[in-house]
């Protein structure tokens, strides 16, 4: 087809001919399109093999990865709950069948169900910020005291349980049922729904403090900065990305 060849040659010479959707797709996917050789060099250069300086910085990333592995250790506590949950549920059923435990729940105590104080101790590690702050306003960090930091590790099990207890207590006062999932989780942790009262009793008292109103807000146990603010300088953390993405989506109109 000499005519066709001539025509396509002529087209090739025309500088102004535009890239269509198919050619664009070919260029983007393969970096090459016979009809548009002018972009070959550019796209090849953009996708050239990595150069040594482009592979610098692995050490820092690797260190962060390994550090993240170390600080994640508390996780097994959770897994233990998961394993124990069916057992706990079975125990709960048995307890209900036996009956009489409701009375114990009423009085808020079952002998032998007091958990070791580990949760309290771990939970109390979240407390220092408030006590430190309410103490002396000026002496911000006297020598010998430990400056509370945001990165203070809080055992997930500890705070989660406390939160559940508080939620449970709150609902009880209002006469409303708890969310089934939360209730299940709490019952599993307590060793049965009927043992929740006894289980939660020590957890509803802030450690070292007489008693707290049962409705005390759970926010005190969240010392970490959250992503509520839109502060420009703040690293929003991984969770912030969803929000950021949502914001971008809104911000971005289909342009041009």
């Amino acid at each position: 087809m000499p005519l066709w060849d001539a025509l396509s040659n002529a087209m090739r010479m025309t500088r102004k001919r535009r890239i269509g959707p198919d050619q664009a797709e070919r260029l983007l996917a393969t970096g090459h399109d016979p009809a548009h050789p002018e972009l070959d060099r550019l796209l090849a250069a953009a996708t050239a093999p990595p150069r040594p300086h482009e592979l610098a910085g692995l050490d820092a990333a690797l260190a962060a990865f390994e550090e993240a592995g170390r600080t994640r250790r508390p996780a097994p506590a959770r897994q233990r709950w998961r394993v124990l949950r069916p057992l706990a549920a079975a125990a709960a059923t048995a307890a209900v069948l036996v009956g009489g435990v409701a009375v114990a729940a009423e009085i808020g105590y079952l002998p032998g169900t007091d958990r070791p104080a580990a949760h309290e101790q771990l939970g109390s590690r979240a407390a220092p910020p408030s006590t430190a702050e309410s103490g002396h306003g000026t002496a911000s960090a006297p020598a010998g005291t430990v400056e509370p930091t945001h990165s203070l590790p809080v055992t997930p099990g500890g705070t989660a349980i406390e939160r559940l207890c508080r939620g449970w207590d709150d609902r009880r006062h209002k006469g409303r049922p708890m969310k089934p999932d939360d209730l299940r989780e709490l019952a599993a942790a307590a060793g049965g729904e009927d043992r929740i009262a006894a289980f939660c009793a020590p957890r509803l008292r802030p450690p070292g403090n007489g008693q707290a109103p049962p409705n005390s807000p759970p926010s005190a146990t969240h010392p970490s900065p959250t992503l509520a603010d839109d502060g420009d300088d703040d690293d929003q953390g991984e969770d912030g990305d969803e929000q950021a993405a949502a914001r971008n989506k809104k911000k971005k109109k289909e342009d041009e």
């Binding site: 910085g57 820092a60 990333a61 962060a64 990865f65 993240a68 994640r72 991984e238």
Partner: peptide, 12 residues
């Protein structure tokens, strides 16, 4: 490197 730090922390 910020990107990788974040990725490293969240990857697990």
């Amino acid at each position: 490197s910020e990107t990788w730090l974040q990725t490293a922390r969240a990857l697990r």
